[in-house]
């Protein structure tokens, strides 16, 4: 298979939609991603600096909601699956290669800084928004949650609003 051929977007969308229906039918919850990042962060802090997690409000609330073992979490398992699935897909379509991807006019340093800053923003934003594009926007849309759909509009609306300032990075 050629490395640049991707699946038809509508077909991919239908498959993703069906997967989401199956997920909700079996588990009663949608897909997600940022929750796994959160759980992994909590687990790391717990391992490195346990006194801190005992005394800090955020970790205490996390423990109340999700229990004592942050890695025994549905989303952590799901995201491990995502890693495997994406790797298999890359393998089949011959896309496995170490590469730093950037816009045609972007500098490598800028791209690295941007990726790091973008990650930080998502880390903070997904906590505030109680989910990311998967957990809040997509799954929220599937169950028609007002909060999820608001977050979705803010994500995409915000991205369009800010896009102008970063056009040199991408075009």
């Amino acid at each position: 298979m050629k490395s640049e051929t991707y699946m038809n977007p509508y077909l991919a969308g239908v498959l993703l939609g069906v997967l989401l229906i199956v997920t909700i039918y079996i588990t009663g919850r949608g897909l997600g991603a940022s929750g796994a990042i959160k759980s992994t962060t909590v687990a790391t802090v717990q391992a490195v600096y346990p006194e801190h997690t005992d005394n800090t409000l955020f970790y205490k609330e996390y423990r109340q909601d999700h229990g004592e073992t942050p890695l025994m979490n549905w989303l952590v398992f799901e995201v491990v699956g995502v890693l495997i699935g994406a790797f298999l897909s890359g393998l089949i379509s011959d896309r496995l290669v170490f590469k730093l991807e950037q816009g045609p006019r972007s500098k490598t340093k800028i791209r690295i800084a941007g990726a790091l800053a973008g990650g930080i923003l998502w880390g903070v934003g997904s906590q505030l928004g109680r989910g990311c594009t998967s957990g809040a926007a997509l799954s929220g849309m599937a169950v028609m949650s007002t909060g999820g759909i608001l977050t979705m509009m803010a994500i995409f609306g915000g991205a369009y609003g800010f896009a102008y300032f970063f056009r040199r990075w991408w075009t």
């Binding site: 990726a115 800053a117 973008g118 934003g125 505030l128 990311c132 594009t133 915000g158 991205a159 896009a163």
Partner: peptide, 20 residues
């Protein structure tokens, strides 16, 4: 929901990805 979403939107164009 709104402010978190806006921050994520900024993160999208700055970082080029979302978590998933």
């Amino acid at each position: 929901a709104l402010i978190g979403g806006l921050i994520m939107g900024l993160g999208f164009v700055v970082g080029g990805f979302c978590p998933g």
